[in-house]
């Protein structure tokens, strides 16, 4: 871009970030490249005539320097540039850890193509044959949402300093919430199936509901807790001024404020439950997932494909319905 020559006060230029900070970043980059060289397990090499260099560390080094140069040109602060370097480092670590490659896409595509073809030819009749499992799945989702969201609301109320009886209670419940939230839904599924018995023992639905409840409590307690933290303080003060007890204050000043958000989260959790029940069924909790699991063990891919199409349709419908309800609530 050419700027016309104007004598009047020169355009203010953003100063370049401190060169010393970037020198430090350069040192960090060199350290990162050494880490690449050290951790690289690939034997692929780049022949440049005079020497043979390991391919992936060289690519990584080019990436590092490119990012540094870009940050310098865009006048990014040193901290942000350090963040960018960290992202590259973690990506290298993850990528080499799981052996990232896209080669199977063209090398092994023929092996997977017959299976994908079976998926592209779903057996439509199968969709209606498993409708009772769909009913069970939806019912499980409803029950788990109802119970999980109620307990979650209670825990969120106890966890937020705004509505909690005391600080120790709030801290303790917060810790419990993060423990509940950190175990994935599949972990709960395995746990309850092991404790109660799975579909084979006739307890799959119960185990699935319990797993979904724990899963819901974690999400609702987190989301609602954040909403409670940010409620308008005015009604709280008014309730305090009229001498209300904690329960009255929570009922009159907090609950009405969080109700729209809370209902919307509950609907969101309901959608999540339908998706999660697929996974839970595979580990032995009931619902449509157990059907998928059976078909998967028979390598009956066209039936699985039919179920998955039905799943997408059910999720889209639930998505649409809950979107409509959410629009009316909020």
């Amino acid at each position: 871009m050419s700027t016309p020559a104007i004598e009047a006060p020169a355009r203010p230029q953003k100063p370049r970030p401190a060169a010393s900070a970037y020198a430090g970043l350069l040192a960090a980059a060199v350290g990162l490249i050494l880490f690449f060289l050290w951790s690289s397990t690939s034997t692929l090499q780049l022949d440049i005539g005079v020497a043979r260099l390991p391919l992936y560390p060289i690519l990584g080094a080019l990436g590092v320097f490119a990012v540094l140069a870009l940050c310098w040109r865009a006048r990014t602060g040193p901290l942000t540039a350090l963040g960018a370097l960290a992202v590259i480092g973690v990506t290298w670590w993850g990528g080499s850890g799981i052996g990232f490659t896209l080669a199977p896409l063209w090398e092994d595509f023929d092996r997977g193509w017959p299976i994908i073809q079976e998926f592209l030819d779903p057996s439509w009749g199968f969709i209606w044959r498993v409708w009772d499992q769909w009913v069970v799945t939806l019912a499980m989702a409803v029950v788990a949402t109802g119970i999980g969201c109620s307990v979650g609301l209670l825990l969120a109320m106890l966890a937020s300093p705004v509505s909690s009886p005391s600080k120790p209670v709030s801290q303790a419940v917060k810790a419990i919430n993060s423990v509940i939230r950190s175990i994935p839904d599949i972990g709960y599924g395995l746990l309850f199936v092991a404790m109660l018995g799975g579909t084979a023992a006739g307890a799959g639905e119960m185990a699935g509901i319990l797993a979904l409840i724990m899963f819901n409590i974690g999400i609702i307690a987190k989301l609602t807790g954040e909403t409670i933290d940010s409620v308008d303080k005015g009604p709280l003060e008014a309730a305090d001024a009229t001498g209300s007890t904690l329960l009255q204050r929570d009922r009159i000043a907090v609950l009405p404020q969080i109700l729209p958000g809370y209902s919307s989260y509950s609907l969101y959790v309901f959608e999540l439950n339908i998706r999660a029940s697929v996974v839970l069924g595979i580990v032995g909790a009931g619902g449509i997932g157990s059907t998928i699991s059976v078909q998967l063990s028979h390598f009956n891919y066209s039936n699985i494909s039919a179920i998955m199409i039905a799943l997408v349709i059910v999720v889209l419908i639930v998505d649409y319905v809950s979107l409509t309800i959410r629009r009316r609530i909020t």
Partner: peptide
Amino acid sequence: AVPEIVFAIAIMLPIF
């Protein structure tokens, strides 16, 4: 709408 497990079973496992 498609759960990640569907992508895994349908597309990724056969090829990768």
